[in-house]
Design a binder for these strands. Structure first.
Length: 178
DNA sequence: TGCACGATGAAC
DNA sequence: TTCATCGTGCAC
């Protein structure tokens, strides 16, 4: 792993415990990020960017801190945070949230958390510092026990999928699967 | 223009 | 293990 890919894995770990905030029609929804997965870039065969730049993955090639939202399996959306400088298409998939404020319905799993927050491709490319959709530091920063596991359901990616790039908060009740 | 498939989730 | 469901990407 070079320094760039290490950066994305580091960012993935740092996202754990942070709050994802969404404001819709004056109502604030907040979820604590408890599970993520890192996709390291064009050389990562498990990443959408592995087969080059397309209309769908365009945002991954842009500047960091933006939302990459894609539609999958005909019914779910997934939310990623783009990492690394423009031209290096890496991102961190948000896999599960622990409800903090105004979150009803399941938030364990990338598709379900987007459903709970009403996130779809209209949010694709959003800069995550905007006042209606952003990532914030939690009020109190507690110590977090980190667990690293292989990515989920990307076996076709060969050995890439066996690297430990899925991170979650130990013993958290909202992890999407074991 | 057609078609196989997927960074999912739920049921069986 | 199977299936729902459809946009995307690439083959033709």
């Amino acid at each position: 792993m070079n320094s760039q890919t290490r950066r994305t894995a580091t960012v993935a770990g740092e996202l754990l415990g942070k709050h994802l905030v969404r404001v819709r029609r004056g109502r604030r929804q907040v979820g604590r990020i408890v599970e993520v997965e890192a996709y390291l870039g064009a050389h990562d065969r498990a990443a959408h960017s592995a087969r080059g730049r397309t209309a769908r993955n365009e945002v991954m090639f842009g500047p960091p801190g933006h939302a990459y939202v894609y539609f999958i399996y005909g019914m779910y959306y997934c939310l990623n945070v783009v990492t690394e400088r423009a031209g290096r298409p890496a991102a961190v998939l948000l896999r599960a949230l622990e409800p903090v404020e105004n979150l009803s319905g399941k938030t364990s799993g990338p598709g379900l958390l987007c459903r709970a927050l009403k996130i779809d491709t209209r949010r694709n490319g959003y800069d995550l510092v905007r006042d209606d959709f952003f990532i914030a530091e939690p009020p109190s920063r507690e110590d977090i026990a980190l667990v690293k596991r292989p990515q989920v359901v990307v076996e076709y990616a060969g050995w890439w999928a066996r690297r430990h790039l899925r991170f979650y908060i130990a013993n958290n009740a909202y992890i999407s699967r074991k």
